[in-house]
């Protein structure tokens, strides 16, 4: 469903990504693990067609991000962490509906999707309130509903739990599981190994723009003989993936 093939991205003399390759299967929740500056967000932006790879190719749902960017955008929903990209003077409903319109959905389809998503994420009490007054958790719910309004097959979540408190982060994980049950393909980036471990069976570990490991968490544990997750991550990073 997501095929990353020998992708590099350079900004002038700075290399943000170097020869990254991995594959995410349909219906899978795949973890992209790495410290800040590892290149996770750059990779997400390449997948979202906001940036173009300097070398290599990415295919999403069979479409090339460089040759068919609009087809890719129709099939993905992306949520960037930190700033969730909502309009604070619009209500939750208006924010979701706006993105529905941009994806070419009819009014009745948008209404039905808002109804479904607000039930799914328990947003009914604040659906018609302006987003500016929302807590971080409420904003995150609206942001993910906005990401899903066009029912994308592939969902890209870049550090989605950044800034969330424990209960909001738990709620967010529940939402991911619900989406997994719906058969969505999810690429989930984080710098938190234990969080990735709760959601993903397979992961890619990145460090300073390079891919150090791609495979199952169990295989990673076996390879290094380390069980503690944080220690495992540090072992991979310090060993440069060897």
């Amino acid at each position: 469903m997501i095929e990353v093939h020998q992708v590099s991205k350079r900004f002038g003399a700075f290399t943000a990504l170097q020869d990254v390759s991995f594959r995410v299967e349909a219906g899978e929740v795949y973890g992209l693990l790495g410290e800040n500056g590892a290149g996770k967000t750059t990779l997400m932006r390449l997948m979202a067609t906001i940036l173009r790879p300097t070398q290599g190719e990415i295919e999403i749902a069979g479409f090339s991000v460089t040759r068919e960017p609009e087809a890719v955008r129709r099939r993905i929903g992306i949520l960037f962490g930190g700033d969730v990209g909502l309009y604070s003077r619009l209500t939750a409903r208006e924010n979701i509906a706006y993105f529905g319109s941009l994806y070419g959905l009819e009014k009745t389809q948008i209404a039905a999707q808002i109804e479904r998503l607000s039930r799914m994420f328990e947003m009914e009490p604040f659906l018609d309130r302006r987003v500016g007054s929302f807590s971080r958790g409420m904003r995150q719910k609206v942001a993910i509903a906005r990401t899903l309004v066009h029912d994308p097959a592939v969902i890209l979540l870049d550090e989605p739990t950044t800034g969330l408190d424990v209960s909001a982060a738990n709620l967010f994980r529940r939402m991911i599981r619900m989406l997994q049950e719906e058969g969505k393909t999810i690429l989930f980036s984080s710098h938190n190994m234990s969080e990735i471990d709760k959601l993903c069976r397979r992961i890619a570990v990145m460090h300073q723009g390079r891919l150090l490991f791609a495979g199952s968490v169990d295989a990673l544990r076996q390879k290094y003989g380390v069980h503690d997750l944080d220690e495992l991550f540090m072992t991979v990073v310090e060993g440069g993936g060897r």
């Binding site: 129709r74 909502l86 941009l102």
Partner: peptide
């Protein structure tokens, strides 16, 4: 600055 432009440009427009 608010991050809304990035979200907007991920839409097929």
């Amino acid at each position: 600055e608010r991050g809304t432009l990035e979200s907007l440009l991920t839409a097929p427009i």
